[in-house]
Design a protein around this nucleic acid. Sequence first.
DNA 1: CAGAACAATGCAAAAGCTTCTCATTTTCTT
DNA 2: AAGAAAATGAGAAGCTTTTGCATTGTTCTG
Lengths: 149, 149
Amino acid sequence: MAEDQEIRKVGLKVTGPRVKILELLEKYDDRHVSAEDVYRMLLEAGEEIGLATVYRVLTQFESAGLVERHNFEGGYSVFELSRGQHHDHIVCIVCGKVVEFTDDTIEERQQAIAEENGFEIGDHSLTLYGRCRDPECPGKQGAITTPSG
Amino acid sequence: MAEDQEIRKVGLKVTGPRVKILELLEKYDDRHVSAEDVYRMLLEAGEEIGLATVYRVLTQFESAGLVERHNFEGGYSVFELSRGQHHDHIVCIVCGKVVEFTDDTIEERQQAIAEENGFEIGDHSLTLYGRCRDPECPGKQGAITTPSG
DNA sequence: CAGAACAATGCAAAAGCTTCTCATTTTCTT
DNA sequence: AAGAAAATGAGAAGCTTTTGCATTGTTCTG
C-alpha cells in the first residue's frame, strides 16, 4: 500500500503494472536492473505485463524522480530506486559487478571545472571501468579491455 | 601518405575507405563525429563508401588505438582521433557543445576509490552535463533538464 | 454505486544505431 | 602478373527502445 501512496503522490494512477514494478524495484534495491530484467522477472513471477509498459512506467518513474536511469556501455539502460543522494559507479568489465561511491573531492572539482569552462552543471555521469578482485569473479588474469565513454 | 604509414603501422591494409576516414578524422580533429557523420560527409565529398565499412573501420581504428569512442547519452557513439592523453567531457545539453578537460585531482581520487573498493581500473568515463554560457547558445534561461548516466 | 471520461495497457509494428552475411573487389605477396 | 587472403558494399538482421491503436482499467461525478 505504501507503493500506492508513492505512485499517487507523483500524479500517476495506481495500476497493477506500476505497483508491481515499484515493488520489484524495492525488492532489488541493491541492484541495477534493465527494463528487460524487470519484464522477465515479472513474467516469471506469473504477472501479465508487456515490455512496452515496463519501458513506459520506468520512464514515468524516472520523470517523477522515483527511479534513476543509468546508461552504461552497450547501449542499454539500467534502473534503480532513487535514494536522493547522487552517486557514481565502478563497473567490473569481467563479471558486471557494480559498486557505488560518492566522493566530495571529485564533486567539488567538477563544480570548479564547470565554472572555469563557463558551464552551469545540471548533472554528471562518472563511471569507472575495471576489474574487481572478487575471488568469485572469473577474470583472474590477462590484459584489461577498456570500454570507453 | 602519412595516413598510409599510420594504417600500416597498426597492421591494417591500406585501402581507400580507411585512408579517407582517417583523413576526415584529422580534418575534424576538434570535433566529435558519429559514424553516421563520417558516412554522410564522405558521401557528400563524392566518395563511394558503405555505412557498414565506416563502422568496421572506426571499430578497427579504436582497437588499434588510433581513435577513441565515446558513448554519450542517447545510445550512439562519437569518435575522435586519439591524442594519447586521457580527457573527460562537459556537454551542453542545450546546444550540444562539447568541452574537454583533464584534472589530476579527480584522476588521483578515482584511483584511490577503485583501490578502496578492490578494483583495478582499466578506463573511466566522466561526463558533465550542463548548460554553457555561450551567448550564441539558444538556452538562455529555464530549468536544467538532466540526462542521466 | 453506476456511468462517463480519460488514462493505461498490451501487442505488434516501427524506429534508430550497430553488426553481420556474403558475393564481389582490392590489396599484398611471390 | 597471379593467387591467396582480406576488405568492401548492400542489404538483412539484431538489440534496445518507442509508438500506434484497440481494449481494458481507474478515477471522478452525480
